[in-house]
Design a protein around this nucleic acid. Structure first.
Lengths: 197, 197
DNA sequence: ATGTTGGACATACCGATGGTATGTCGAAGA
DNA sequence: TCTTCGACATACCATCGGTATGTCCAACAT
């Protein structure tokens, strides 16, 4: 009952998500029509509505793809060895790089809260990128590397700070130099929270 | 050549912006139709397109209104007396309160970067709320209250951190307690940047 | 072998919405 | 009094998200 020769179903679905991902990144959610998406994916709206319940669902699929890709990269970096502090620093560096990618920036940071609604975005992020940041903060507190600040709030604030830093880098005339500044500043902030500093 | 008895023109324009402001705050930009806006303002689309070039322009008018209102409140608070540090702290408290207002949060923080585009939003903010944060950071550096970090980047990061903090408060089950946590954490961050700390 | 079912699409169509083109009315100037 | 013009109102159009329907074909059942 499943599949003919090959699994056309999966490739069609993948083509749609890929197409949506690219167009949403370039033109944004509102600026991208379903016709444009299906045209790029070389299918029709019938296929789209067969696989997804609508434009939002397709957006969330693209969102999931970007997040999953980012997650994989981040976990592999943060699971390395070293102290909690060292891994947190490595994680920050890595996360800022993730934030610099156009797809992540536009889809995950900017559009998702608007398209999905902030609450839903927050829930999704709870187990994704934000989850990693939070875990890092928890590890730092547990290791008594930083002052015992409220974890949830500290993680949220750090999360927001990293986004802002990445955006600043992305739109800077001298990204290299700005990236160095962001790095310095974030480290300074973290150092400020450090114990006995 | 201008106005009949009274200035109907101005009241019509104001009604449209007010209506747009309220509806954009409640339903968001995409979720608000022009028909709904003009209906609430008791005018027609003809009036809307006479005063504004389109939906985006109307949004920006609403954006300006929210920003101007917020600016006035903030400047009056931050222009008080005290040291640069004291005024910065007062400004932070005040700005977090501003961020908690639904209109500011939804229109200025969430939707504007998407609707206007991030670059345009940044430019607009340059002389508005962000300008105040930046000025505060500059004052702190000038007064040698904090470490000589790059002003632009530090201000951006602080700006992002404040937004994240405000959002956390707004969606918290216990806003009062969370607000206190945010306050503590932001102050901790600022203290971390402080000289000789 | 043949009829039947159901998944994987394609095509045609509909309603809502942003935007435009045109019409109207009344006040101010010539 | 005639014309002009600003401040709208009305009618209309094109695009777009979503739906309803049709088609094709493989996997069963008989």
């Amino acid at each position: 009952m499943r599949s003919r020769r090959v699994d056309y179903t999966e490739s069609t679905r993948h083509a749609l998500v890929e197409s949506a991902l690219e167009l949403f990144t370039k033109r944004g959610y509102a600026g991208t029509s379903l016709d444009a998406i299906v045209k790029r994916a070389r299918v029709t709206k019938g296929a789209l509505y067969h696989h997804f319940s609508g434009k939002q669902a397709l957006f969330e699929a693209a969102f999931d793809l970007v997040e999953t890709t980012a997650m994989d990269r981040l976990t592999s970096i943060m699971d390395g060895d070293g102290t909690a502090w060292e891994r947190a620093m490595a994680g920050i560096q890595a996360y800022v790089r993730v934030c610099l990618e156009p797809s992540y920036q536009r889809i995950v940071i900017h559009e998702a809260p608007v398209v999905m609604g902030w609450e839903r975005w927050r829930e999704a992020e709870e187990h994704r990128s934000y989850g990693l940041v939070r875990a890092a903060v928890e590890a730092l507190v547990a290791a008594e590397e930083i002052e015992p600040l409220p974890v949830e709030v500290t993680a949220r604030i750090l999360f927001g700070a990293l986004h802002a830093g990445a955006e600043t880098i992305a739109s800077a005339t001298d990204p290299k130099a700005t990236a160095a500044d962001v790095s310095r500043t974030v480290v300074a902030v973290m150092n400020g929270m450090r114990r006995g500093g």
